[in-house]
């Protein structure tokens, strides 16, 4: 075995020890995440913290809790947009909403809500469709910093042209500018949009079902999980959803390799929206 191979194996050992350390010390469990992406992000974190090795980073995070929040921002991916993938939101509007209308009250769970973009998109859509008053929105994430941002509902003004275009393409029935005020380079979203929203800390890896819901929207979260963890997360969605409830995934996510695939029917195939089957 040559030196390079030894070095590679060493980093792999360090990586697993670091994830184990984070889990034991802080109960954040990244051990079942997709390793290729985690490796990449931990290398970036190692450089950012000026550490020579992942072992040094482990030492830092174990002994200095102040390092954790910043490290979490590397470990969790927070890249989203309002109405990201407009065809998804168009399908929710045109195909899912007619079913949701038949319920007197609704619960929507945005799992892995990051800074809230997906939840605000759904809140605006539900308001446009006249469903807002009967709906409770749950936004959950493991990153407290993301939850703070989601609760604030403030986005950089530079992102608004994209959000506005996405909203239009999603079949938006109003102007996005009705929902925010621009101030000091930021767009502050209307507080009334989160009147019926609860943001909280919840892990798809370690936590359990907390509500019975009619729609789960969980987009570009499962791609960061290995297959066992994907099975666990989709199992939670299955157990949370009412009969005939809906599950929306990211544009490149599917239930094709999932242990719970049989519990769902494809509802809008291209937009990756599934419906829980009737028999349970």
């Amino acid at each position: 075995m040559d030196l390079d191979t030894v070095l590679d194996k060493t980093e792999d050992i360090e990586l697993r020890l670091l994830l184990d350390a984070i889990y034991r010390r802080y109960h954040y469990d990244f051990r079942g995440y997709s390793m290729a992406s985690i490796t990449r992000r931990l290398r970036q974190a190692r450089e950012h913290f000026g550490c020579r090795t992942l072992s040094q980073l482990q030492d830092r995070v174990l002994h200095d809790p102040a390092v954790l929040p910043e490290l979490l921002s590397y470990l969790t991916v927070q890249v989203s947009e309002l109405f990201r993938d407009p065809p998804y939101f168009r399908a929710i509007r045109e195909r899912v909403v007619p079913h949701l209308r038949t319920y007197p009250s609704l619960k929507v769970w945005v799992a892995g809500c990051s800074a809230g973009e997906e939840l605000y998109s759904l809140a605006i859509l539900f308001r446009e469709e006249g469903l807002e008053e009967r709906t409770m929105f749950y936004g959950t994430d493991i990153n407290p910093e993301a939850i703070r941002k989601a609760e604030a509902g403030v986005y950089e003004i530079e992102r608004l042209p994209l959000f506005t275009e996405n909203h239009r393409l999603s079949g938006g029935k109003s102007s996005l500018s009705d929902y925010y005020t621009a101030a000091y380079g930021a767009a502050v979203f209307d507080k009334t949009l989160r009147r019926r929203a609860v943001f909280s800390d919840h892990s798809l890896v370690t936590d359990a079902v907390f509500a019975e819901v009619h729609l789960v929207s969980c987009r570009n979260v499962l791609i960061y999980f290995d297959r066992q963890l994907q099975d666990r997360a989709v199992g939670l969605f299955k157990d949370s959803l009412v009969r005939k409830g809906f599950l929306g995934l990211g544009a490149k996510e599917s239930l094709r390799f999932n242990a719970h695939a049989d519990a769902f029917a494809e509802f809008a195939r291209d937009e990756r929206i599934y419906q829980k089957r009737g028999a349970s």
């Binding site: 997709s34 290729a36 991916v77 570009n220 791609i223 544009a251």
Partner: peptide, 21 residues
């Protein structure tokens, strides 16, 4: 690689996608 996603290879030689920066 699909548009708007990074394409990666996992250590077990499966493909994975990511919407990192």
């Amino acid at each position: 690689a699909p548009p708007d996603y990074h394409l990666l290879v996992e250590p077990d030689r499966r493909l994975s996608l990511s919407s990192e920066e």
